[in-house]
């Protein structure tokens, strides 16, 4: 897939809570094909202390309006500055980057996201739904305050929540949700904190099902030039930006 560098315009900013926000960014021309799990690398021009671009998962794509949606959590200088962008601001974007989740057909699929790791799962659930899969998404958050943006998943399947304090859905981590024991799945997909993804990997291995995880190693370029974002796989160091971010756990040394 050809990679592009383009200026996008911020057309919508939605504050989900004090930590999370969604940016709708619009291109001047029709978007190329974008696959679920791919990411963009955006330049943060409104903060001089941010030197490198920031890689962000693609949350959703609206081809009719040439809009890409980014689900962002304020963590460091880069994401905090992105949260200060104003409608009409320009954003330099390198995209579409990375590989994608694989899309089975007519299967029972389980998606597990934790924290801002939910970002790529919405677009993935859309693809899975369109391919005739049954989609169950579990989002794991700290409390009901962080259980944001759930409605968007509803058209594509069942959405379940776990909270660490029990304020919404089942109490505990997403990998402790009762649906994991009460039902069976054919494929699992996950994105979020590494300990959570490792728990999803362990669950999937115990059930003998395929599991794909999306890694978020720090990177400088995003397109395979710097070799900074490697992960140690069974076939040696692989760039997360080009050979990932999505890996099947059978290829990782987890």
């Amino acid at each position: 897939m050809k990679k592009l560098i383009q200026d996008f315009e911020l057309v919508k900013y939605e504050e989900l809570n004090c930590e999370h926000f969604v940016l709708d960014i619009k291109a001047n021309e029709p978007l190329p094909e974008i696959l679920p799990g791919q990411f963009v690398n955006v330049r943060v021009d409104n903060n001089n202390s941010v030197f490198l671009r920031r890689p962000l998962s693609i949350h959703n794509v609206d081809y009719d309006r040439n809009v890409i949606q980014l689900f962002v959590k304020r963590i460091g200088e880069g994401t905090k500055s992105l949260g200060k962008l104003k409608i009409g601001d320009k954003l330099s974007v390198v995209y579409p980057l990375g590989n994608s989740y694989s899309i089975p057909k007519n299967a029972k699929t389980l998606l597990i996201g934790g924290g801002c790791g939910v970002a790529p799962l919405l677009y993935l659930s859309k693809f899975l739904h369109e391919a005739g899969n049954e989609v169950t998404t579990i989002l794991g958050v700290r409390s009901s305050y962080d259980a944001v943006g759930l409605k968007a998943y509803e058209p594509y399947g069942r959405i379940l929540v776990t909270t660490e304090d029990g304020s919404q859905g089942e109490k505990g981590y997403p990998t402790q949700h009762s649906v994991l024991e009460n039902e069976s799945f054919d494929y699992s997909f996950t994105c979020g904190p590494e300990p959570m993804m490792k728990a999803v990997a362990a669950y999937s291995e115990s059930k003998g099902i395929s599991c794909e995880v999306s890694l978020e190693n720090t990177m400088a370029c995003g397109f395979g030039a710097c070799l900074c974002c490697v992960t140690d796989t069974k076939k040696g160091n692989k760039c997360v930006c080009t050979e990932g971010p999505v890996f099947n756990i059978k290829d990782l040394k987890w």
Binding site: T218, C229, N237
Partner: peptide, 9 residues
């Protein structure tokens, strides 16, 4: 090469 992490801004 070296193990990850390999880069710091």
């Amino acid at each position: 090469g070296n193990p990850y992490p390999r880069m710091a801004e």
